[in-house]
Design a protein around this nucleic acid. Sequence first.
DNA 1: ATAAACTTTCAATTTATATTGAAAGTTTGA
DNA 2: TCAAACTTTCAATATAAATTGAAAGTTTAT
Lengths: 173, 173
Amino acid sequence: MQLDEAKSRFIEGWGTLGSAWGVSRTMAQVHALLLVSVGALSAEDIMEQLQISRGNANLNVRALMDWGLVRKELRPGERREFFSAEKDIHRVATLILQERHKRELAPIMRVLGEIRQVEPSPTVSAEEAQAFTQMIGSIQNFAEFADRAAATLIKADENWFLSTFMKLMRPRS
Amino acid sequence: MQLDEAKSRFIEGWGTLGSAWGVSRTMAQVHALLLVSVGALSAEDIMEQLQISRGNANLNVRALMDWGLVRKELRPGERREFFSAEKDIHRVATLILQERHKRELAPIMRVLGEIRQVEPSPTVSAEEAQAFTQMIGSIQNFAEFADRAAATLIKADENWFLSTFMKLMRPRS
DNA sequence: ATAAACTTTCAATTTATATTGAAAGTTTGA
DNA sequence: TCAAACTTTCAATATAAATTGAAAGTTTAT
């Protein structure tokens, strides 16, 4: 396979993956393109390679910058902006986790905390109320656990965690 | 807060969470409704409580059954079908992980494996090809790691719950 | 065999989301 | 200051996804 074809396939695959996980296809594709590009790319480059409009390119590049996955690169003597992606995949994962925590986990946790205060009422049996509270409680517990686990991974910039657990999980390597 | 309001808020929140993660809002809402319902519900119940059409209810209930999150419950002497959700949150998490692994992780892993075989070509520099191969390789490694980590952490959480439960049951030993 | 009580399907429609492209805005250099 | 070289915005448009509802299909009881 040629490098160009390999890159296209990666961009396509990354886009598909993104849309399955609630990230817009184009945003994921811009990210993929920047990941496999050696240098930084201009808006024009992105427009051309992905065949998208200027506005669309701008929108998605800015969204990626909000996520911290892409940064602007200014070249002395050049007026236009270039963009490059964070290439360290561990940092990429960290940034994505942080952002998703903030945007999606935190809000649902707030809701769970609020709805757990169900008042006793004459129209519902005690056991029904309790079943509800238990369900919510177990979701809270699990979410907190998952959250802490993710945070632990985030803090594992040092390799001790990764190497320790990699050995546990990949006894063959 | 009344139980009914709490349930509504949960259903709404779960739906929002779902759509942020690539699950259709209604599917997540049907799931939420069944999670907080004590018994099994009929198609009619779901239609009424979520204000959706019969076709929509049927479609989403079947999708949830494909995920293994919901099962049909037949009552002797009743012609219609009832549906109930898996209530054990660890099983829920496990089922979701399994399914997403199968649907989304496995396909991208296949692509990554394929595109890593870039042929040398006179039109691309060796270092460009190598940068690409390294990028793909690090994504592969990370994906494998994350995959194992998720499975391991879920098991760890299950064990934690189990041991806590055992201690509660057998405080003396 | 027929009808009643359901479930399933799917073409049409609605709704939500992404995209465009031209205009407005901004920055830089002469 | 102006004009060139850019970036950003946003109303209009296109695309994709979800939803409806009625018809077709299925199962069960009589």
